[in-house]
């Protein structure tokens, strides 16, 4: 059987979903028999070198780079999976939604109680930095997402069951205990 190709990324996430992915423990040995990783922080491949069968997205979209990466994933993956609360609904970064960007930046870099070293009162303005979006967006509000796996972080068994089902083209068997929002 040809190995399915998997790509993963973390957008506005904390890498907790990727850590939870690694919580499949020794099943990772079974996984390498089933799949080959392409663009992913797991193997550090930075750009797509071929079309992937499954793209796994952690994190929502909080800046212009997230949007670009997400669109690249949509173009290069046959199936996209939103993994975790941030990808599905913005997650904790979305707590800033509704608060003007200027106010957020002021709090973080100028007026916040823990700000000590910013005497020149500089807001991050390097042209290399991606622009913040007005809101943090769930991934499915930017591109079409095919599957959603909730959790913060999603249970390793949920990731394993769903992934094996997708790879082997079987129906997902997701028991009650593994589908949780926290």
């Amino acid at each position: 059987m040809n190995k399915k190709i998997i790509a993963t990324t973390s957008l506005a996430g904390c890498f907790g979903c990727h850590m939870s992915f690694l919580d499949i423990d020794e099943r990772i040995l079974e996984l390498v028999e089933l799949v080959e990783f392409n663009k992913s922080p797991i193997d550090d491949i930075k750009v797509f070198t071929k079309m992937a069968d499954i793209g796994i997205i952690e994190g929502g979209c909080c800046n212009s780079e997230n949007i670009e990466v997400l669109k690249t994933f949509r173009e290069n993956c046959k199936v996209l999976v939103s993994l975790g609360e941030c990808a599905i609904m913005g997650g904790l970064p979305a707590l800033r939604n509704g608060i003007p960007i200027e106010e957020c930046l002021r709090e973080a870099y100028l007026d916040g109680p823990t700000v000590q070293e910013n005497k020149a009162k500089i807001l991050p303005n390097d042209p290399e930095l991606p622009m913040l979006l007005n809101n943090v967006y769930p991934c499915h509000e930017i591109v079409k997402i095919d599957y959603f796996l909730p959790g913060c972080a999603p249970n390793a068994d949920l990731i394993w069951n769903a992934l094996v089902a997708l790879v082997t083209e079987n129906e997902m068997d997701l028991p009650y205990e593994v589908v949780k929002f926290d």
Partner: peptide, 11 residues
Amino acid sequence: MVPRFPYQFPQ
């Protein structure tokens, strides 16, 4: 798994 409606994020 995901709401079918767009998130409002009301203040």
